[in-house]
Design a protein around this nucleic acid. Structure first.
Lengths: 389, 389
DNA sequence: TTTTCTATCGCAATCGTTTGTGTTATCGAT
DNA sequence: ATCGATAACACAAACGATTGCGATAGAAAA
């Protein structure tokens, strides 16, 4: 029997073995009625010795003979602390290479100084540019950005929202996926008072704050421009019917037609799911008509580029036979041949404004201002629509 | 004198005012020698009543009459917990809409399940595509992504690194800015054992783990191809001298020239800072030469597109008079006219692999494997270089 | 002197989860 | 009946920073 002392009464005689627990011998002291095992490693010491140990405010305090409280307050310029200690604490912090544990800080005052951003994907310059805008403003205001991609799938989006919320982001900026028609997953959190900003593609719920392009006005500008160029029959290629941008841009198309008292042909209004095939199919259908459209307005620049490539393959002159216009002002539009006429929606600005709206929300704690912010864009005219020079 | 009771001795007579502290009346009990103020708000109750209060494991424990420990272990399927309680705990967790506070969890076991990613910017599809790759693999493996942009500025990069480290990311994936020539800001952390992965643009320090494109081989393929097309004099437009990619791609250029015993003209090797002007300047200089190059190999697709546009303006036939090739395989290269011959570096794959390397690092705690991972790419031949059809 | 301020600082709780180890009841084997 | 084994649970410390409030000394006022 090994000489084991009871940690309580320090006696040896009264100890007897009492089975194993977690692979270790367990002892029992008859006197104190106390079960225990040996091998107490000092966890504290263990942690301190770790290679990547970071100094804490407590370390600074010990080194200076003051409390952690004072160190914390000194670093934050709290009025209770004297100037002299503030200075010396700050010096010591630098000397000891102190870096605050932002995780601990966030946890303590339960705000992470982080926003979550969900975008459909990062392949499209469109979305990445918005993300860039968000990140820029976030960074300028001391916020970090936690980002996710929904890959245009509803279930991914839902999962991402929960992940970000569980990570206790201070707010959420989201551009919904194409599939999303139910917005409960964000509304739950919005009702709890967490700032949620929609951008570009929008939750139709009237209570949300959203930042969108001037879809209707933009479409109006483009259509007006095409008519000015002498186009008589304009085809419009839209996205899925469920998307608000589809709805709004169609509205612009219709508005201008009405304004000029032009009759609308239903065959000239086409919906797609953004895939190459669905787009080409429509163009081919139009080309087969007796009276082809003399202009095609596309829901996006990418769509327009697909159309242009297809028309070129078929040896159709752009813009002479058919003018083409896009929407968005993607970088590519400037580089292709012919240059693409489009409406610049200011993607980066949309991102920046979204983040700004979040910041306003945080400042304005008193009730949330439900607003739709539209970002001014402008028409970009290039060769693809210039019938008259 | 108000009837204030001493919190210790409960007497009233012995109380006297003792100034103000933080805008509140302070009292002093002569008997107990005790200073105090009134107005004790129960902070706990205050927090509980907050609108966005989230249920905790302690709440679940209370509701079920068990300890928080048991709840935690039940949710994590710890063997100590009986099956029946596991089931009921999980049910209760759902019923009470429990969501773990990831901030608290990260703080407790000091790992955030988050990686930091720093890229120069999000405007270039190039970088956003890599970020996309990183995020994809991260998401698949239960990691979150905290992202920053350096805007190609060294100081921003340094600041970002510290911010991410202070946020206690589990690792850092970084594509250095053009300006960066000193790597201390990452090396400090690497030495502390924090996994740091370099991608695309690389820290020349031999100890780092890095994921890069096959720069030299890619350039070799392109140059070989151009020579096969009958080109005799190939100009190469590089980036800044400090970049490794500049160095490596030039190497490929030189290798093939040597292989074919072609003499190298120094005037055909040009460095730029990636700006439009610096690129055009070089092209113009070449065009002014008696013997113009009959092919131009550019460090990036964007550079190549600038060159193509400029040549087209000057009515120079591509590829008949001058063939053009890029590097990277940006989406744009496929859409412009003529289609751009380039080397596909697989940007997304670079991002994915980088994240994978990080994951390997985490698993492989035993010493870090210092390795350079090169991602296989391939030549993409399009019209811009096809002199022979 | 006595009482009242005021400037500085420290104590201890708190945030929610994790985790090492102690506790207890029950059961089988001596 | 005694002792050892095991299953299943609880206690409490720890993570690092923040923060309400109390403590104390010296200055100012009464």
């Amino acid at each position: 029997m090994p000489r084991v002392k009871c940690p309580k009464c320090n006696k040896v005689e009264t100890i007897l073995r009492s089975g194993f627990i977690r692979k270790k011998q367990r002892y029992f002291c008859k006197e104190c009625n106390y079960n225990f095992t040996l091998n107490h490693e000092n966890r504290k010491a263990k942690n301190k010795s770790r290679k990547n140990y970071q100094t804490t405010i407590l370390d600074i305090g010990k080194a200076m003979g003051i409390s952690a409280t004072t160190v914390s307050r000194a670093l934050h310029d709290h009025p209770d602390i004297s100037l002299s200690t503030k200075i010396s604490v700050k010096e010591m912090a630098i000397a000891m290479d102190y870096h605050p544990n932002l995780l601990a800080r966030s946890f303590a005052n339960s705000q992470s100084q982080t926003v979550g951003v969900i975008i459909p994907n990062l392949e499209a310059t469109f979305f990445s540019s918005m993300l860039g805008g968000v990140q820029k403003v976030a960074s300028q205001n001391g916020y970090k950005v936690l980002m996710c991609q929904s890959n245009e799938e509803y279930l991914n989006e839902v999962e991402n929202v929960h992940l970000l919320m569980d990570s206790r982001v201070d707010g959420l900026l989201i551009c919904h996926s194409i599939e999303t028609t139910n917005f409960d997953h964000v509304n739950i959190y919005r009702k709890r008072g967490i700032p949620i900003i929609n951008f570009y593609r929008v939750n139709k719920d009237s209570e949300t704050i959203s930042v969108v392009a001037k879809n209707t006005e933009g479409a109006e500008l483009v259509i007006e421009h095409l008519l000015n160029q002498g186009c008589k029959k304009i085809g419009i290629i839209l996205g899925p019917r469920s998307l608000l941008i589809t709805e709004e841009r169609l509205k612009g198309y219709l508005n201008i037609h009405k304004k000029h008292l032009i009759e609308i042909e239903q065959s000239m209004i086409a919906y797609t799911d953004y895939t190459y095939n669905s787009i080409i199919e429509i163009v081919d259908r139009w080309l087969d008509m007796k009276e082809r459209p003399d202009a095609i307005f596309c829901i996006s620049d990418r769509t327009a580029i697909y159309v242009i490539r297809h028309l070129r393959k078929k040896n159709i002159q752009i813009p002479a036979e058919i003018a083409v216009a896009g929407f968005g002002n993607d970088l590519m539009g400037e580089l292709i041949e012919p240059g693409l006429t489009t409406y610049d929606v200011q993607t980066s600005k949309i991102g920046e404004t979204s983040m700004q709206m979040f910041l306003d929300q945080v400042k304005n704690e008193f009730g949330q201002i439900t607003k739709v912010h539209t970002i001014e864009g402008h028409l970009v005219v290039r060769e693809s629509s210039l019938k008259q020079k």
